[in-house]
Structures are given as C-alpha cells and as structure tokens.
C-alpha cells in the first residue's frame, strides 16, 4: 500500500480511481433507491452520479470528509433542497417506487413520510408539548385533544425523553439541555410517524454522554423506521449503522456492510479515510 498524505489524496490525482462506486450499493426491495443523481448549486456541482439504495428498517451511515456532499445528498431525500433557489437535482430518486422529484409528488406529503433531524437542535420557541404536537396538528393527524396528548406522550416515550420532562411539558423547548433538545427534535419528527428519518450529524453539537444516549435511541428506532444518518465520526457510524457509504468530493466511493467497510475497505481512499490519513 502506498503511503499517501493529505495532499496527494486530492481528487485530481485519483479521480479515475473512484469514477464508479465500489461495493454493494444496490439492494433488492430498497426503501429508497437513487440512480445517477447529480446535484449542483448554480455553477458548482456538489454530487456526481450517485447511485445508492437504502434498505428498510436499517440504519445507513453516510461518511466522508467535510464538503464531500453527504449532507447535500441527504437533503435530496426529502427535498429540503427545494428551499434553496439555485439548487438543481437530476437523476432518479425513488421512495417505495414513487419518484421523489416527480411533479405529482407533493413535498409536504413527502416530508411527512421522510422526516429530518438537524445538526444543531432547533426546537421551536414553544412549549415542549407544543413542539411535539406541532406536526400532528398541522397534518390533522389527531381528531381530538386526547389523541394529541397520546401522540405527544408516545413520541416522547419513543425518544426516551418522557421520563425527564413529564412534569414540565409546558416549559419552553429551549429550556432543555442540548441533548434533551435533540431528543425533543427526534420526538417531534416521530410524532408525524414518518417512514424514513434523515439525521444530519445529529450528535455533533452534543457532549459524549448525550451522544451515547442519542446513539442508543437510534438503535432502538431502527425497529420501526428506516434511518439515514450523516456523520463525521467513524466510530459513530460503526456503532449505529448496518451499512455505510463513503462519500468523497461529491461521489459515492464505496458502499457496504458497516463491518466490512471498517474491517476490509476495498478502495484505497476509503481505507485512507477510515485509518485517519486524511479527513
């Protein structure tokens, strides 16, 4: 194996090496499947020919150095990129066989099915209760206040937060600690009962203990939801995910079972990254 430092790993030298994805990027019966996805912001292309399947009820981690396009890719999956005017997406993205970017696919409906948790906890300036009840209310998922109560409590329970906040459901969401806020955001997402949850570095703003709690939570949530998690921490990817996709300079370099990727990477850039030679 060649010794490479950060500099020689630049794409201009090695573009040919990862022009197409190595590994098991395609699956049978995927929850979400993407083919030849290209994304650009104005003149700047952020994703090149990404093809990746995401399996049902499992956690897939998207890893890679910062600026590699993993967050952009994630935001394509529930069309959060729509809010950025200059963002252009081409290629095929399917959710259960339905085209995500089709004209008749409604972004509101899509986002109700594909929820998202952000890097920085962003509770609304409302009470804890109202934060969780927000989604069910706007979507009309509850027919009575009792139903809303029920949804709020189950969601908080599922997010492992209920025991901590049950006495102060009317306190503002911003009064919680960082880790609690992030779990509140997860509870908020669960309350809409999505099929897929996208997580954009959900623990990067948290301390190690809060991170551990979130990671446990993700593992539990896998029973009912398909989860796509972007992370810059390889340890986290190894701990919570079943599959891992390695992104580099806007391309998916390698995809495979997490165990396999971390023990036996096939692409030398993947290896360089997970062994900490750059990134």
């Amino acid at each position: 194996m060649q010794q490479r430092n950060k500099k020689t790993a630049s794409p201009s030298l090695s573009l040919g090496n990862f022009a197409s994805t190595i590994g098991e990027n395609l699956l049978n019966d995927a929850k979400i499947s993407t083919r030849d996805v290209n994304v650009s912001y104005g003149d700047k292309q952020a994703i090149y020919d990404a093809s990746l399947d995401i399996g049902r009820n499992q956690v897939i981690a998207l890893i890679g150095p910062s600026g590699c396009g993993k967050s952009t890719f994630l935001r394509c999956l529930n069309r959060m990129n729509d809010t950025i005017g200059i963002c252009k997406v081409s290629g095929k993205l399917m959710l259960d066989g339905e085209d995500i970017y089709a004209k008749k696919m409604d972004p509101v409906l899509l986002r109700a099915r594909v929820g998202m948790v952000f890097q920085k906890p962003n509770p609304f300036p409302k009470s804890i209760y109202d934060n969780v009840a927000y989604g069910p209310r706007i979507h009309g998922l509850a027919r009575s206040n009792a139903e809303v109560d029920e949804i709020v409590i189950t969601s908080l329970e599922k997010a492992g937060l209920f025991e901590e906040v049950k006495d102060r459901l009317n306190a503002p969401g911003t009064s919680l600690s960082g880790g609690q806020q992030q779990r509140l955001c997860i509870a908020r997402t669960i309350a809409v009962s999505p099929e897929v949850i996208l997580m954009d570095e959900p623990a990067s703003a948290l301390d190690p203990i809060a991170t551990a709690i979130i990671e446990e939570l993700i593992d539990e949530l896998r029973q009912n939801y398909t989860i796509v998690i972007v992370t810059h921490s390889m340890q986290q990817a190894a701990r919570v995910s079943q599959r891992t996709a390695y992104f580099h300079m806007g391309r998916i370099v390698e995809v495979g079972d997490t165990n396999r990727i971390f023990t036996n990477p096939r692409h030398e850039m993947t290896e360089n990254y997970i062994t900490g030679k750059f990134g």
């Binding site: 409604d106 099915r113 009962s193």
Partner: peptide, 15 residues
C-alpha cells in the same frame, strides 16, 4: 398505522 392518507386528505385545504 399509516398516516399518508390522512395527510393527503388535508392537503387540498392546506394548499
């Protein structure tokens, strides 16, 4: 439980 239909039903009004 599937909420998709419930959400879909309310969409027209919301738009």
């Amino acid at each position: 439980m599937n909420n998709t239909e419930t959400v879909k039903a309310g969409l027209k009004k919301r738009y």
